[in-house]
Amino acid sequence: MKTIHTNHNLTDMYNHPDVALAIGFFDGLHLGHMSVINTMKEIAEEKELAKAVMTFDPHPSVVLNPEKKRTDYLTPLDEKRRLLEAIGIDYLFVVSFTSKFAQMAEEDFIRDYLTNNHVKEVVAGFDFTYGKFGKGNMMKLEADKQGFNVTAVAKQELNTAKIATTHIRNALIEGHVNEANAQLGRPYKISGLVVQGEKRGRTIGFPTANVAPDEAYVLPKLGVYAVTLKRTGSDQLLKGVCNIGYKPTFHDPAVSAVSIEVHIFDFAESIYGERVEVFWHEFIRPEQKFSGIDALIAQIKQDKESAEQLLADISLD
């Protein structure tokens, strides 16, 4: 997959064959987003066009609504890029969402980012908007199109609820991992590096991999989770129990940073410096402060047993 960062240097963007294009911010690449992208892929294959996705960076709220700006994501840009490449997208256009871009006239967006960009098919969600003040919508795009066809994908629902990034974010923040995963269509994932930690876990019989996210991910509710983990370059799925939080038994939350520590079952290798992916499956309990090491160890044993039961049906193949 070729990634093209526009930075509004549009001449560089145009160096590619005719494409079918899915447009949206696509944070999460959830089931609703995938309906748009899969529709684009079907049209591309039928019309023998390259498959392309256009997204924006940063989130438009950074420019349009600073008081409620979104700076953490379900799928930060690099994560989004990896997921799109894995499903066979040929081109990813990353449009810089700046104040200048936000003021662009609707007809200029159509001309510069669609018609001149060799776009022959445009696919987007029914609620996609563009141009200054977001006045352009899918009906107007159909009316004003220049050299391309337009397909609007209807609202996607799960159990009568709209599938939406906001719902998924809220579900994760509240610890409702199952609800978030159902709308994502897969377990929520955070990628990062295994870094040196305090190494306290190994002294109490539960060594952990301290995972430092490499992008600004939405963090689930603080607490203990049943998780799986993959190492870079390996398809092997490892099961574990994860604590995300401040470790209040040892630290003052007011002055400590959040850490993600995974105890991997039946695993003794050193993986410092490796990039890993942590998949979140089930919330077990909130983070809590214990009276001492013995109480902590007893609870960790219970958490491990709970995680083993919750992950029992997940295949390691």
Rank of each mutant, 00 (worst) to 15 (best):
V123N: 06
T75Y: 03
N117R: 11
H118F: 11
K80Q: 08
K80N: 02
F128S: 02
F109V: 07
P58C: 13
D127R: 07
F109D: 03
T115M: 08
A124F: 11
I110D: 02
E121W: 01
K132G: 00
D108N: 08
S61T: 15
D57C: 06
F101Q: 02
P60D: 08
T75G: 03
L114Y: 07
V119K: 05
I87K: 12
M104N: 01
F133K: 12
Y91G: 11
F109M: 04
D78P: 00
N117A: 14
F133H: 12
V95E: 15
G88E: 11
F133S: 11
T129K: 11
T55L: 09
D127P: 03
Y91K: 09
D112P: 00
V95K: 06
F97Y: 15
E121R: 07
I89Q: 03
F93W: 10
E79P: 01
E106G: 01
V94I: 15
Y130C: 03
F133E: 13
V94A: 13
N137G: 07
V122K: 03
V63H: 07
F97V: 11
T98V: 12
D127Q: 06
D112Y: 12
P66Q: 13
E106R: 04
F101A: 03
D112W: 05
Y91T: 10
G125P: 06
V62Y: 13
V123H: 08
N65H: 11
Y130L: 03
S99P: 01
L83S: 05
L84T: 04
N116C: 14
T98C: 11
D127G: 05
Y73R: 01
R111D: 08
K135Y: 12
D72V: 12
K100H: 11
M104S: 04
N137W: 03
P66F: 14
V95I: 15
G125H: 09
L64S: 04
L92F: 09
R111Y: 04
Q103P: 00
Y130H: 02
D72P: 00
E121C: 09
D72C: 08
P76H: 07
V122N: 04
T98M: 12
L77H: 03
L74M: 04
L83Q: 14
N65P: 00
T55M: 09
F93C: 10
F101S: 02
R82S: 13
R81A: 04
E79Y: 10
K135W: 05
I89C: 05
V122I: 13
S99Q: 14
K120F: 09
D108E: 12
I87N: 06
K120A: 09
A124L: 09
V123Q: 06
F56W: 08
D72F: 05
F126K: 08
T115C: 05
L74I: 05
P58T: 13
T129L: 00
V119I: 13
A86G: 10
S61C: 01
E67N: 14
L83W: 10
N116M: 15
D112L: 14
G134Q: 05
Y91D: 07
D90A: 12
A105C: 01
K132P: 00
G88C: 11
R82A: 14
I87V: 15
